[in-house]
Design a protein around this nucleic acid. Structure first.
Lengths: 215, 215
DNA sequence: AGTAAAACATGCGTGCGCGCAAGTTTGCGT
DNA sequence: ACGCAAACTTGCGCGCACGCATGTTTTACT
């Protein structure tokens, strides 16, 4: 049972969501993000403009949604697939870096990088990591640890990813490098690993706690 | 302005109606009318079974609707296209006979003829002639004649057509031929013309009345 | 024939998409 | 700088489709 809602209603809802996403991305790539109106996306998706805003609350959301679609699910799945004896911190870092460096997305990420209005929307998508990640972490920690722990860790990881993306999207004009724990303005994988390294102690603590209880 | 409702809502409604019609006909031709369930039609149309019965109140209606789809509109258009100086009775008869003898429909009409449950549903479709025909007749008579006259004539014509179809669908086993005004058990065109001939006096009367008024 | 199962048809509550009418933001021309 | 028009976003009501539960009819099996 992967998806509980197998109803025809839910199918069609997801279908229009995907149609909107793909139409938005296609039009943005073809005409440039600034030359695409909400009405155009809605029409291309065969849907009312009002319905567009029932799914996405801003014009940019649909475009970035197409880019980050299912990335969250892939990350959660990748976390779940790591060997159980791996450190949680490593599993998370590996899965996240792996999924944020898909070569397929590279040209599209450029599109986002170059458009300031898309950047903000893109950063917001990091929040969507939280729920699937919470499930994956909870499963990894086992039911013995409270759900709260998993949720908190997922939230902090998502925040860290968001911060890394934020740093990465900054134009490299800023000199930065304050000598803190996080080394800024590097490649995206480095930024992600650095950001997550700061969380390693918390992740290790939860991880060890779980080891004691189970074994 | 052919269609006033150009809204997206109406478009999609007609789309699902057409999808149901065509799915029903396709399945009926492929597997036989008795081996097609409502659920199959609905699924083929990408729609809930409940929705099927929002459009068609019986299993057979969708099948026959596909056969008679837009025939009513074609008849009304054909009536409107006849020269204005033609007798109304002739215009009606010609238009109706013409549209009920489309060679494309012939194999499908056989399907209906051979299935008793489809025959009843098919006869009911004659009633759908009434509204478009009323408009065509009203336009032909001009606004001087009351709308009521046009409606009454349209209703009687539709009833006559229904009677002719009813007669035509009867297996020729019945001896009939009672010497009345209507000669039964002939070809469909003959039956239609005979049935409409009985209405000619009424049609002529309305026609002449209109000629007097318009001068 | 009689009963069980399947298919058909309908009432009713709910959710989603549409259409309209605001109010707000953005960009352009004067 | 100022308005003005286009585009964006949201609130609200309505209509259509869905899902379910019910009652009825048809079919199949013994």
């Amino acid at each position: 049972m992967t998806t509980r809602r197998t109803g025809l209603r839910e199918q069609k809802k997801q279908a229009t969501r995907v149609a909107l996403r793909e139409a938005a991305l296609r039009l943005a790539l073809q005409y440039g993000p600034e030359n695409v109106r909400v009405d155009d996306i809605a029409e291309a998706a065969g849907v009312s403009p009002r319905t567009y805003n029932n799914y996405f609350s801003s014009r940019e959301q649909a475009i970035v949604a197409a880019v980050t679609a299912e990335r969250e699910e892939r990350i959660a799945a990748a976390v779940a697939d790591r060997p159980a004896h791996d450190r949680l911190a490593d599993a998370l870092a590996d899965a996240i870096v792996e999924q944020y460096t898909e070569p397929d997305d590279h040209d599209v990420l450029l599109l986002i990088t170059e458009n300031p209005s898309l950047r903000d929307a893109f950063l917001d998508t990091a929040a969507t990591l939280e729920h699937p990640l919470a499930d994956a972490i909870a499963q990894r920690l086992g039911d013995t640890a409270g759900t709260l722990t998993a949720r908190v860790l997922a939230a902090t990881v998502a925040a860290a990813v968001r911060a890394a993306l934020h740093q990465w999207l900054q134009p490299p004009a800023a000199p930065c490098a304050t000598g803190g724990l996080v080394v800024p303005s590097g490649s995206l994988p480095d930024l992600l690993r650095s950001a997550l390294a700061a969380l390693a102690p918390a992740l290790d603590a939860a991880d060890k706690l779980q080891d004691v209880q189970t074994g």
